[in-house]
Amino acid sequence: MERNVTLIALFAALIAVLGLVPQITLMSGVPVTAQSLGVMLCGTVLGARRGALAVILFLVLVFLGLPLLSGGRGGIGVLAGPTAGFVVGFPFAALVTGLVVEKWRSAPVSVASFVGAILGGIVVLYGFGVVGMALKLGKTLPEAALLLTPFLAGDLLKTAIAALVTQGLAQVRPGTLLSRS
Score class of each variant (00 low, 15 high):
residue 1 M to H: 13
residue 140 T to C: 12
residue 31 P to C: 10
residue 124 V to D: 04
residue 45 V to C: 12
residue 48 A to F: 00
residue 71 G to C: 09
residue 77 G to M: 08
residue 168 G to S: 14
residue 164 L to P: 03
residue 105 R to N: 09
residue 28 S to I: 01
residue 19 G to T: 11
residue 154 G to S: 07
residue 82 P to K: 07
residue 135 L to H: 00
residue 137 L to K: 13
residue 27 M to S: 10
residue 93 A to P: 07
residue 112 A to V: 08
residue 16 A to V: 11
residue 64 L to H: 00
residue 92 F to H: 05
residue 142 P to V: 12
residue 144 A to T: 09
residue 116 G to T: 07
residue 169 L to I: 15
residue 45 V to G: 07
residue 128 F to K: 06
residue 28 S to H: 00
residue 173 R to S: 12
residue 104 W to Q: 09
residue 25 T to I: 12
residue 119 L to N: 02
residue 122 I to V: 15
residue 167 Q to M: 08
residue 147 L to F: 07
residue 21 V to Y: 06
residue 112 A to S: 15
residue 172 V to G: 09
residue 125 L to H: 04
residue 42 C to E: 06
residue 164 L to H: 07
residue 87 V to Y: 04
residue 162 A to H: 05
residue 24 I to P: 00
residue 13 A to Q: 09
residue 81 G to C: 04
residue 22 P to T: 11
residue 3 R to I: 13
residue 95 L to M: 14
residue 11 F to W: 02
residue 117 A to T: 10
residue 175 G to C: 04
residue 120 G to E: 11
residue 56 I to S: 00
residue 170 A to W: 03
residue 12 A to E: 07
residue 13 A to I: 14
residue 78 V to K: 01
residue 174 P to K: 03
residue 179 S to H: 01
residue 174 P to W: 03
residue 73 R to F: 00
residue 173 R to L: 14
residue 150 P to T: 00
residue 115 V to G: 08
residue 7 L to H: 09
residue 146 L to N: 13
residue 114 F to E: 04
residue 18 L to C: 11
residue 94 A to G: 12
residue 27 M to W: 11
residue 53 L to S: 10
residue 96 V to D: 03
residue 78 V to L: 01
residue 8 I to M: 13
residue 62 V to R: 00
residue 94 A to T: 04
residue 58 F to C: 04
residue 113 S to V: 07
residue 91 P to R: 05
residue 126 Y to P: 05
residue 123 V to Q: 11
residue 1 M to N: 12
residue 72 G to P: 08
residue 169 L to H: 08
residue 19 G to R: 01
residue 140 T to Y: 13
residue 135 L to Y: 03
residue 9 A to R: 07
residue 17 V to Y: 01
residue 179 S to Q: 03
residue 145 A to D: 04
residue 156 L to D: 10
residue 45 V to L: 15
residue 146 L to V: 10
residue 44 T to I: 12
residue 86 F to Q: 04
residue 89 G to M: 06
residue 136 K to L: 06
residue 76 I to R: 02
residue 161 I to W: 04
residue 41 L to N: 06
residue 57 L to G: 02
residue 104 W to M: 14
residue 82 P to E: 05
residue 51 G to R: 01
residue 163 A to Q: 02
residue 30 V to F: 02
residue 112 A to C: 12
residue 180 R to I: 12
residue 164 L to G: 14
residue 102 E to M: 02
residue 128 F to H: 12
residue 83 T to E: 03
residue 71 G to M: 02
residue 8 I to Q: 01
residue 61 L to I: 06
residue 134 A to C: 10
residue 33 T to V: 14
residue 159 T to N: 03
residue 88 V to P: 04
residue 94 A to M: 06
residue 67 P to W: 01
residue 10 L to Y: 08
residue 25 T to K: 09
residue 86 F to I: 04
residue 101 V to G: 06
residue 36 S to A: 09
residue 105 R to K: 15
residue 107 A to H: 07
residue 132 G to D: 04
residue 22 P to V: 12
residue 164 L to V: 13
residue 130 V to N: 08
residue 8 I to A: 07
residue 74 G to S: 11
residue 140 T to L: 11
residue 19 G to M: 05
residue 122 I to Y: 03
residue 96 V to I: 14
residue 75 G to Y: 00
residue 38 G to R: 04
residue 79 L to Y: 06
residue 41 L to V: 13
residue 83 T to S: 15
residue 180 R to D: 09
residue 80 A to T: 15
residue 156 L to E: 02
residue 52 A to V: 06
residue 120 G to I: 08
residue 166 T to V: 12
residue 118 I to Q: 01
residue 146 L to T: 13
residue 143 E to M: 05
residue 5 V to L: 15
residue 68 L to W: 05
residue 96 V to A: 11
residue 5 V to A: 15
